[in-house]
Write a protein that binds this DNA or RNA. Structure first.
Lengths: 340, 340
DNA sequence: GAAACATTTTAGATCGATCTAAGTGCAGGA
DNA sequence: TCCTGCACTTAGATCGATCTAAAATGTTTC
């Protein structure tokens, strides 16, 4: 079929109306399941739609009503399974409401994020779920308000003026610290990585507070490279410290995986020579050996909740800003023991 | 700002035109960087756009020209990091062309896939990258041709009539078998999982052919559950066979991860007691210990290539169907040894 | 000075839906 | 018979861009 024919073949409401012997307006009412049309007419129109293979043109409708049925999702890193799970939750809930998700990857770069937001506005998205790139200025929130665009922040936040769905990172850190302390650990390190953003800060602050409240030294903060492969090779950083830790809390599952591998390479036994607590608890935690004791943050549920909030906000833009902060769960597995 | 005000505030080309003292048509020409407008006029219009905070309305434009600048991507499972990497490649290339990706998850269900395709047509996507759900009938390809919708199949194929970007699974299996055979293995099992589709079939056939061409018994095909957690518990299946294998090739990284864990649980040393070869080679392969020898299929590159083919096809729908079949690479690490 | 030409600009139709306001029958009541 | 009300149905304007064909303007040539 050539381009010309295809174009000619394209079925619109007018074609349906002609075929069913009604007006455009009536066909449109049938489309929207209005109770106004008579049942005989309705059936005739529906038959005509089937016969002609009519496909609704959301784009055309959007011009009239201000609903594109598209929402945007911007995440800093698609290849991280954590964000993939988040997306999965978003897609599921949004898909169930008949809307569609435009996906974009900011690469944690503010300028790219800016470009993506503009592109999404050009596409007339009904709203955006945004995990703000590191170093995003809180002024972005004012712009978003100017635009009148419904936005839900996930996992990281830049402003109290926008909805936020996240995790009680501080409580998660407390759970990890408390657990390790209960095993007798006193020299606990926090292995961090990546750029600084609210989720980073909350974890670091949570760690410090939890350590201080037990009179433990909260200063063993060790920065690792961001690439998984390089973390294992940087494991020595753990032992270059003034006080050598007996336990390590990991910033996320990537650090945990990397350290788990690196410790193995050094012939150390996790849980005996050094205790390890992970964060995020993606599938890997169950799959590596020893199984990783880990603070679960439930990315899928966060995605679902963010999507639900966004749908609500789109329906009612004047709602006051809400914050949903999920609890974490400590999954105790095999990677921790008493200090040697 | 209330809803009403916002609506009133919305800036259109007419507003820009009025502000710049030109006509709608001229403003439109500036927008599209036409060489027809004089430079003084162009500057005046651009200034007006900036002053008013004009945002292009792609949806409105789409009504006139048949280009939505949206493409769709349908994958069977979002939480699988393999598909997340695929998507990442797609998003990068598509994003670079100024288009946008609608993401959808078929859950490997044909009816859901059907619904998603319709939804994408309603949104007027310019094309779709489809990893067909298992049991998709090849008749779908005829429908797609009827619709005149550009489609690229990735990783799995249902029809020779559509573009396809995938992996030479058979060659990958041969690499794995040859490598294990070169170490002296003769009893090699293939640990599979999930529903049957072209990629499954090609791997199974490739395994059989590779085994047969070395006069080895190709019949040790073991089915595992699909959930990562359950695979480890089902490791015993490896030893319930008539002939106990000395090496196992894994269908994908999930099986590899599960078995790696399960073997560890049974006190077996991978590479000594049993050799393991993975498939897909996502980040985990480097991260588990022993490091997993694995056949790399390069999901990001596949996504990029699929996106490139789709863009080409959209530009030129009359191209004959193309197939791009990437080579695999065997990454030899630590999970294989000589048979005990 | 007018014709011929190139360069810019524009009015009006158009894409495919929705919305408003008005129109058509038809039954029942005065 | 005429009016009112009810149940449907519809013409025409509209959303915000693009496209076509023509008009306005400026420039050169004879």
């Amino acid at each position: 079929m050539s381009f010309e024919e295809r174009k000619k073949t394209r079925v619109t409401l007018v074609d349906v109306a002609r075929q069913a012997n009604v007006s455009r307006a009536t066909a449109s009412l049938v489309l929207r399941k209005s109770p106004l049309v008579g049942s005989e007419t309705r059936m005739r129109v529906e038959q005509a739609m089937r016969d002609l293979g009519y496909v609704y043109n959301i784009g055309a409708a959007r011009l009239r009503v201000e609903r594109s049925q598209i929402i945007g999702a911007i995440v800093p890193n698609l290849t991280n399974p954590f964000f993939a799970e988040l997306l999965s939750g978003i897609e599921e809930v949004i898909g169930a409401t008949g809307k569609v998700v435009i996906l974009a990857n900011s690469g944690d770069q503010v300028e790219r994020q800016e470009m993506l937001l503009r592109r999404m506005r050009e596409h007339g998205v009904d709203g955006v779920i945004l995990c703000p790139a590191a170093r995003t200025e809180s002024a972005l929130s004012d712009q978003i308000a100017d635009w009148g665009m419904p936005v839900v922040q996930v996992l990281r936040h830049i402003s109290l003026g926008l909805d936020y769905v996240g995790v009680d990172y501080a409580a998660g850190m407390r759970q990890a610290v408390d657990y390790l302390a209960s095993l007798g650990h006193e020299k606990i390190a926090f292995a961090v990585l990546g750029p600084i953003h609210s989720a980073y800060q909350e974890r670091v602050d949570g760690f410090r507070d939890a350590m201080l409240s037990r009179n433990l030294d909260p200063r063993i903060l060790i920065h690792f490279p961001t690439q998984l492969g390089e973390i294992a090779n940087a494991t020595h950083l753990l032992f270059d410290q003034a006080t050598r830790p007996t336990a390590v809390i990991c910033f996320n599952h990537i650090v945990a995986l990397g350290l788990s591998a690196g410790l193995h390479d050094r012939g150390l036994t996790i849980g005996r020579d050094l205790s390890l607590v992970g964060f995020d608890d993606v599938a890997d935690a169950e799959a590596i050996r020893p199984k990783l004791t880990s603070v679960a943050t439930g990315p899928v549920a966060i995605g679902e909740m963010a999507a639900r909030l966004l749908v609500e906000r789109i329906g009612n833009p004047d709602l006051p800003p809400r914050r949903v902060v999920n609890d974490t769960t400590l999954h105790i597995r095999q990677s921790c023991g008493r200090p040697g």
